[in-house]
Amino acid sequence: MTPVETSREEIEAVCLKALAVHGAAAENARAVASAIATAEADGNRVCGLYTCRSSAGTWRSERSLEKPFPK
Score class of each variant (00 low, 15 high):
Met1Lys: 11
Met1Val: 11
Pro3Phe: 01
Val4Ile: 05
Glu5Thr: 15
Glu5Tyr: 12
Thr6Ile: 13
Ser7Glu: 09
Ser7Gln: 10
Ser7Thr: 15
Ser7Cys: 15
Arg8Met: 09
Glu9Asp: 15
Glu9Val: 15
Glu9Trp: 12
Glu10Pro: 11
Ile11Leu: 10
Val14Ala: 09
Cys15Tyr: 06
Leu16Gln: 02
Leu16Val: 09
Ala18Gln: 09
Ala18Met: 08
Ala18Ile: 13
Ala18Glu: 04
Ala18Cys: 13
Leu19Trp: 00
Leu19Pro: 02
Leu19Gly: 00
Ala20Pro: 05
Ala20Val: 10
Ala20Asp: 02
Val21Ala: 12
Val21Phe: 05
Val21Ile: 12
His22Leu: 09
His22Trp: 06
Gly23Trp: 01
Gly23Pro: 01
Gly23His: 01
Gly23Phe: 01
Gly23Asp: 00
Gly23Ser: 02
Gly23Val: 03
Ala24His: 03
Ala24Tyr: 01
Ala24Trp: 03
Ala25Phe: 03
Ala25Asp: 07
Ala25Met: 05
Ala26Lys: 05
Ala26Met: 06
Ala26Glu: 07
Ala29Ser: 01
Arg30Ala: 05
Ala31Asn: 01
Ala31Pro: 06
Ala31Leu: 08
Val32Phe: 08
Val32Gly: 08
Val32Glu: 09
Ala33Trp: 01
Ser34Met: 13
Ala35Val: 04
Ile36Ala: 03
Ile36Asn: 02
Ile36Glu: 01
Ile36Trp: 00
Ile36Phe: 00
Ile36Asp: 00
Ala37His: 03
Ala37Gln: 06
Ala37Val: 11
Ala37Tyr: 02
Ala37Phe: 05
Ala39His: 05
Ala39Gln: 09
Glu40Val: 09
Glu40Ala: 15
Glu40Gln: 15
Ala41Cys: 12
Asp42Gly: 14
Gly43Lys: 01
Gly43Ser: 03
Asn44Tyr: 04
Arg45Glu: 12
Arg45Met: 13
Val46Gly: 06
Cys47Pro: 14
Cys47Gly: 12
Leu49Asn: 10
Leu49Pro: 07
Tyr50Asp: 11
Tyr50Leu: 15
Tyr50Asn: 14
Thr51Ile: 14
Cys52Ala: 13
Cys52Ser: 12
Cys52Trp: 04
Cys52Glu: 06
Arg53Gln: 13
Arg53Phe: 10
Ser54Met: 11
Ser55Ile: 14
Ala56Trp: 01
Gly57His: 01
Gly57Lys: 02
Gly57Asn: 02
Thr58His: 06
Trp59Phe: 11
Trp59Pro: 10
Ser61Pro: 12
Ser61Gly: 10
Glu62Val: 08
Glu62Trp: 02
Arg63Leu: 14
Arg63His: 07
Arg63Phe: 08
Ser64Asn: 10
Ser64Gly: 12
Ser64Glu: 08
Leu65Ile: 13
Leu65Val: 14
Leu65Pro: 11
Leu65Trp: 07
Glu66Tyr: 07
Glu66Met: 12
Glu66Ser: 12
Glu66Leu: 11
Glu66Gln: 10
Lys67Cys: 08
Lys67Asn: 06
Lys67Ile: 12
Phe69Ser: 07
Phe69Gly: 06
Phe69Glu: 03
Pro70Gly: 03
Pro70Thr: 08
Lys71Asn: 09
Lys71Gly: 06
Lys71Ala: 14
